[in-house]
Write a protein that binds this DNA or RNA. Structure first.
Length: 485
RNA sequence: GGUUUCGUGGCCGAGUGGUUAGGCAGCGGUCUGCAAAACCGUGUACAGCGGUUCGAAUCCGCUCGAAACCUCCA
């Protein structure tokens, strides 16, 4: 298996530090607003990786943090904490905001069938670990204190190491390009970053420390919690490409100084979802919340799209490519996914015969594994699955049969890839499946009798009325099937 | 300005030095009371211009265009 490592910018063979154990850390959400499509992409990308590694029998510890402190709202490390700001605006206790949006985030992720990580640590629950790490950085001489705040000395760090190793930046460029911003007086250099920040009187999220009552800098939490749960060095660190610099770059610098070694072997970054070619982002005001999409409540949406449609849509692109949002693309994904699930149902009806000719199922299976082993190429997996769909449908249409051994391979292939690895699930019927199906069979039978009498007015009426309830009837050679649209 | 990417047929989106990605839409046919589904068939696609090569959409150079990051962001 090869993975694209942002650090080297090439695909590298994936070798865990302590096989069969794999440690994976992924930057989770800052819980101060509803999750949007971008959150879905990051979560689904690393859910895919988590699921596939487990499928390969790796023992994965997957840590995804909840950022509930230390994220500064404005420029230059001088702003207000994001959670604190929201809390003041809504007259809530900060932890109330955190709880509210964490619950909503979890609900959205459940809807998307994203597995919960092994550990989901909160930054606010690891202030002590962060303070300890800051002490190490201070002791090593790579940070300095000004008025109770501690800043990381990037310039000094860069003399021995390379600040920019991940993002490909050079410190000279940073010097010449760092914007002149107000309130940077405390820093020796504009690109130094706060690792502890003194809180002024108005700041309601604060903890005691040896230096001041304050709060940790944003980059500290991931360094501290990654180290705590996965060790000083672990296999995979993931997140959105927009976190590459300065967040991940700074994480590396902090850990290098505190632990004396690079924290991460493989850095994986998912690309952005775009809207009209532009990044969909909270700060750009063009982000669609997942609830909006699931409910169809957005001026740009022609209709509501189900969580599984969104999941399939995201998996149809490779995680390192930008993915362009459009109604047309979403509707195409919706139709394609339904076709896939319909074929999986049809497979059950396929006749087996040990004398049947081979249908090349093993080749399809191999193609799916090859695709996943090549940097988690889910679109190629899906292409392979549609090969399987074509085989199933054409055999069904020709009333052909399949070798029992190939049937098993095909069945396992679909189960493994569609359900377990891609994490898709059929959304056909919610609720009382048996009751609904029983009712439908009765209706279908009555309609069948009408058709037998050539009473097409009645049979069409039944189909039209069911259509209004988003139920499609499909007459085939062996009777009528129904499907929820 | 710097860093990093990208530009594929109507749409989304893989891939790659020589053989059909795939999905959706379209067109023709089969099937059907009709419809839908399904099946079969169907597309002079790789921004432009040069270069390397027996051969490039794939490698190199230039041009044009777009994006992300350089400030919080998945």
């Amino acid at each position: 298996m090869v993975v694209f490592n942002t650090l080297s910018r090439v695909k590298e063979v994936f070798v865990p530090l302590n096989s069969p154990f794999v440690g994976m850390y992924v930057c989770g959400p800052t819980v101060y607003g509803d999750a949007h499509l971008g959150h879905a992409r990051a979560a689904i990308t690393f859910d895919l990786i988590f699921r596939y590694l487990k499928h390969l029998d790796y023992k994965v510890r997957y840590v995804r943090n909840i950022t509930d402190v230390g994220h500064l709202e404005n420029d230059a490390d001088e702003g207000e904490d994001k959670i604190g700001l929201k809390a003041r605006l809504e007259s809530l206790e900060p932890m109330e905001v955190v709880q509210y949006y964490t619950v909503r985030y979890h609900r959205n992720m459940d809807q998307l069938n994203v597995l919960r990580p092994s550990i989901e640590p909160h930054a606010s629950g690891h202030i002590i670990e962060q303070i300890e790490m800051i002490k190490k950085i201070l002791d090593a001489g790579y940070a300095y204190e000004v008025n109770g705040s501690i800043y990381f000395d990037v310039e000094k760090y860069n003399r021995k190491h390379h600040y920019g190793i991940l993002s490909g930046r050079k410190i000279e460029d940073l010097i010449s390009n760092t914007r002149e911003l107000a309130g940077q007086a405390e820093k020796r250099n504009g690109f130094d970053f706060a690792i502890w920040k003194r809180a002024d009187e108005s700041h309601i999220m604060r903890w005691p420390s040896p230096w001041s009552d304050g709060f940790p800098g944003w980059h500290m939490e991931c360094s501290a919690m990654g180290c705590k749960y996965l060790g000083e060095q672990f296999d995979i660190h993931g997140g959105g490409m927009d976190l590459l610099f300065p967040h991940h770059e700074s994480e590396i610098a902090q850990s290098m100084v505190a632990n004396g070694k690079a924290p991460v072997r493989y850095w994986l970054h998912n690309n952005m979802i775009t809207l009209n070619g532009q990044k969909m982002g909270k700060s750009l005001g063009n982000a669609m919340s997942l609830d909006d999409i699931f409910n169809g409540n957005h001026p740009l949406l022609e209709k509501a799209y189900s969580p599984m449609t969104i999941r399939f849509f995201i998996l149809q692109a490779q995680y390192r490519s930008t993915l362009d949002f459009s109604n047309e693309a979403l509707q195409a994904a919706d139709k394609g996914m339904k076709k896939l699930f319909a074929a999986m149902e049809k497979l059950k009806q396929l006749k087996t015969d040990s004398n049947a000719p081979s249908l090349g199922i093993h080749e399809i299976e191999k193609a799916c594994y090859d695709a996943m082993n090549d940097d988690f190429n889910s679109p190629m997996v899906i292409a392979g699955l549609f090969e399987a769909v074509r085989v199933i449908n054409s055999q069904k249409a020709a009333e052909g049969s399949i070798q029992p051994a190939e049937f098993d391979v095909l069945n396992n292939l679909l189960q493994n890839f569609v359900i377990d690895i891609l994490g898709l699930k059929s959304e056909e019927v919610a609720g009382d499946h048996e009751l609904v199906d029983g009712l439908m069979q009765t209706i279908i039978q009555l309609r069948q009798e009408a058709r037998g009498r050539k009473d097409y007015a009645t049979s069409d009426l039944i189909r039209i009325k069911l259509g209004e309830l988003h139920i499609d009837l499909k007459d085939g050679k062996e009777g009528t099937n129904w499907q929820k649209r």
